[in-house]
Design a protein around this nucleic acid. Structure first.
Lengths: 223, 223
DNA sequence: ATCTGTGAATTGATTCACAGCC
DNA sequence: GGCTGTGAATCAATTCACAGAT
């Protein structure tokens, strides 16, 4: 008799599916604060602009969380997703680059309550090195490898100018970091087992103007 | 004889293709500053972690920009992509939410040199209203519709708390805005012709922990 | 009556592979 | 010899549609 999960075949899970899971988790968290106990794939989908079938299929890769006739228990599904995503523990992060952007990240209060804690910060600017931001002291970037071997982290955050990003990421890779959140405009070279995710509002803006340009041509009438 | 572009069939362009164009443009801009004049799809692809065939096919939706035997002229291809993406003009943006995040966006120097200019800013905090940030004066959010009808913008930036995002986006939609860059964790309800792009580092982090959790289990040995 | 879970069908995206050109 | 541009082939993702559960 089977001890393992119902899902005997450990189907390879498509990347796009994993991309959507955090979104589902967020929506469920919101529903929970609103006091809703049960949600159907149709309702969840409407909120997220995702088809109900998509949601059901996505979830089916991981188990059977719903109940026919009613839908999904919000609290239970949220718990399951958090488990699947590994959000049931703390993740330590090292921030490299404590310029305006880096400080905004440090001061942003949204990471810690969700289990993502910046435990170390680095910069090359000697004016910043030694300063205390929150409760961590900024160290020089060339101490990064030593510092991380002493006190390892799970994730690196790269908030340095584009020209410096590759070197920083090389150093993080040497420290064995496998996940990097980078604000650099271009992905750096890195081994395939190192996952880089970029945050880049400019790319999003440029993506939107592709459609806008046909939509609202007449800012200046053609000459 | 044809006056129109070589590409007679105006093939529908897949969304994923448009997603990649800004990335190509960025890489080309970098190559240009490095003084490189010609680039092959293979080299570009290596830098961006995209296959050469993919790049060639993506570009082929818009024209024939390369030269057999050598590759693409960096400057020319960059110009073409900027034209395709509508980056050959200025785009005006209204920022809603001038908290820590909003101010970081305003102070961020990266938008303006690329043709994206914040021309108006709004907040509900009466302490912020009236303050001058850079060269724009913060107005109260309930003046948004009047202000935007007087002085329209192309893009809205939403940097308000999640709970306020829907109302703000409703107002932007009423003003005829068709493109919204939002820092809210969940897409808001909006008509299908309004494009919302989200910037959300938390979602990226949660995406990465999905793989990390299997990779580096032993932070705490199991009890 | 309602809504899930899921194979099958469909639609969409990527890669192959090669003709054509430099 | 090297590299583009592109139909054809392959691979992947989404949607359909319905059996089965409550």
């Amino acid at each position: 008799l089977p001890r393992v999960s119902r899902k005997a075949r450990v189907a390879r899970i498509p990347e796009v599916v994993v991309d959507r899971l955090p979104l589902y988790a967020r929506a469920l968290a919101i529903l929970q604060t609103e006091g809703q106990e049960v949600v159907s794939s149709a309702e969840l989908g409407e909120r997220l602009h995702v088809t109900p079938a998509q949601i059901r299929k996505d979830l089916s890769y991981f188990g059977r969380f719903g109940k026919q006739g009613s839908g999904y228990n919000v609290e239970r599904l949220l718990e399951q997703l958090q488990l699947i995503l590994g959000l049931d523990r703390q993740w330590r992060m090292a921030l490299v680059g404590v310029g305006k952007l880096g400080r905004a990240i440090l001061e942003y209060g949204g990471f810690a309550p969700r289990g993502f804690v910046v435990t170390q910060a680095f910069d090359v600017d000697t004016d910043m090195v030694g300063q205390k931001l929150g409760d961590i002291v900024v160290r020089h970037t060339n101490e990064l490898e030593e510092a991380l071997s002493r006190e390892p982290v799970d994730i690196g955050i790269v908030a340095v100018p584009a020209s410096a990003a590759q070197k920083v990421i090389d150093a993080l890779v040497r420290c064995g970091i496998k996940a990097i959140l980078t604000y650099a405009p271009i992905p750096a070279q890195a081994p395939p087992d190192v996952e880089q995710r970029r945050v880049d509002p400019m790319i999003q803006l440029q993506r939107m103007t592709f459609r806008l340009k046909d939509l609202k041509r007449p800012t200046k009438p053609a000459s």
